[in-house]
Nucleic acid binder design. Sequence first.
DNA 1: AAATATACATTGACAGGCGAGGTATGTTGT
DNA 2: ACAACATACCTCGCCTGTCAATGTATATTT
Lengths: 109, 109
Amino acid sequence: MSIASDLIRGHTDTIILAQLFKNDSYGYEINKTIQSITDSEYELKEATLYTAFRRLEQQGYIISYWGNETTGARRRYYCITASGKLAYEKLIEEWKIAKELIDKLIKKN
Amino acid sequence: MSIASDLIRGHTDTIILAQLFKNDSYGYEINKTIQSITDSEYELKEATLYTAFRRLEQQGYIISYWGNETTGARRRYYCITASGKLAYEKLIEEWKIAKELIDKLIKKN
DNA sequence: AAATATACATTGACAGGCGAGGTATGTTGT
DNA sequence: ACAACATACCTCGCCTGTCAATGTATATTT
C-alpha cells in the first residue's frame, strides 16, 4: 500500500461496484483482486470494505447472499442490482469530469 | 457547483498550493480563481478553505501576512514556502499515480 | 436604508477511513 | 501435536476533513 488513501477516498464505492459489475464476488476476493490489479500498490482496509458493503446494500446498489461452500470459511457474496449498475455508470461519468477539473486546478502554470 | 466534493476531497490542499505556487493570494481571490478556472463547476466552501489554510500553515507549507489595503476589507495573503513547493511537487506526482490506479480499478471490463 | 459584494473567521454536526480487536475454518510446516 | 498462516467474516471507537450556519467588518450599488 504505497498510495495515500485520501486520494482514493470517495472512490471506494465505485471500485467495489466496478468489481461486482464484472461478476458476483465476496469481500476477501474483491480485495485480492484490487491488490492484483494494482500490483499491491493499493488495498482496501477490511473495516473500510465492510463498511462500504453495508452502505451500498442500504442504498440498494448491491444485494448479498451466503455462498454454499461445503469446506472452508463461509463467504458472503454480493451482487450488483440494476440500480447499482446505473449508479456505477453515473460515478464513472463523474470521475471523468472530476479528473479533468482536478487536472485544471492543480497543474503547474 | 455541480461536481461531488467527495471526488475532489483529498485535493483541497494541492489545489490551494497550486494557486499559491503561481503567486501570493488571499482566500477570497483564490476561491474566485477556482470558480473561474472551472467555469463555476467547482468552488471551495469557505469553512473548508479557511480550515485548509490553518492546516497548511501549521505544516509550514504556507505563511501569511496582512495586506496593506487602504480601502475595503482587510486581506490575509498567503505565500507558499520552499517546503510547500516541495510538498506540492510531490502531491502532483501522487495525483498522477492515483489517477492511473483509479482508472484501472473502476474501468468497465 | 437596504441589498450586495468583498473579506475574514469559528463552531458543531456528519461521514468516511481505519487501527484494533474479535470469531471461525482449513492448510502447511516442524 | 501444535504453531503459524491463510481464508473469511464482522464491529467499535477514534480521527480527519467537509460544510451549513453564524458572526464580524468595510465599501458600493440600488
